[in-house]
Amino acid sequence: MTDRQEIEDLVKALANARGPGAPSLAIAESCTGGMICAAIVANPDVSGGLERGFIVYSLDSKCELLDLDRAEVESCEGVSRDVAIGMAEAGLRRSHADLALSVTGFAGPQQNDEEVGLVHVALARKRREPLHAVYHFGDLGREVICNKAVVAALQMLLAQSEGD
């Protein structure tokens, strides 16, 4: 199965898992640049649950739109567990959503000592501890890494939706 087919299947599964009164969603995307929002919006059975999306590709946008600490963001080039969780928590604070998903990573090409293929995914929920996962996909090319990041994020979101 291709990553694109897996993305479509995960969105369908998410639509099936979300019933009436399902939590609304905010998404803060860095390395995927809106791909998660686009996948969700493409399916009318789940698109209504998207409250808003933040594309925060640059370090400045992470700090300005999500109010992340500049020193922290700059220290890791915007890619770390703490930044991913901070993005998700800020997405929750800066929206009317019930939960917020975030993804940040290095899709390549390599600059300085970045680990190409390193991706962090986080999910913030009201009155609960955030979830976090880290992936080391390797230097597979930008498109493959971004697609794998979308799959990982949707899998986390689906697991949360099925758990509620």
Rank of each mutant, 00 (worst) to 15 (best):
A38T: 13
L99W: 12
V121H: 02
V41W: 14
V121D: 04
D69A: 05
N43C: 13
V73C: 02
L123K: 08
A28L: 02
R127M: 15
L101Y: 03
R127Q: 15
A84K: 09
A71D: 09
F106Y: 09
L123M: 10
A97W: 08
G49M: 10
A90C: 05
P20S: 14
A100I: 03
D98P: 04
D45N: 15
E115R: 14
A28S: 09
G91P: 01
S24K: 15
V121Q: 05
E72T: 15
E29F: 04
R128F: 09
S61R: 13
C31D: 03
V79N: 03
L118H: 04
R125M: 15
D67F: 13
A107S: 10
R70V: 01
Q110T: 01
E115Y: 13
R93A: 09
L92Y: 02
R93P: 01
A90I: 06
G108E: 03
L123E: 04
P130F: 10
L118D: 00
S102L: 05
K126Q: 14
P130E: 11
V119F: 04
M87Q: 01
S75I: 04
M87K: 02
L65G: 08
V103G: 00
E115V: 15
F106G: 13
E74H: 07
G78K: 01
G33A: 12
E64A: 14
G117W: 02
L92D: 00
R81W: 07
F54C: 03
V56D: 04
G33V: 15
P44I: 12
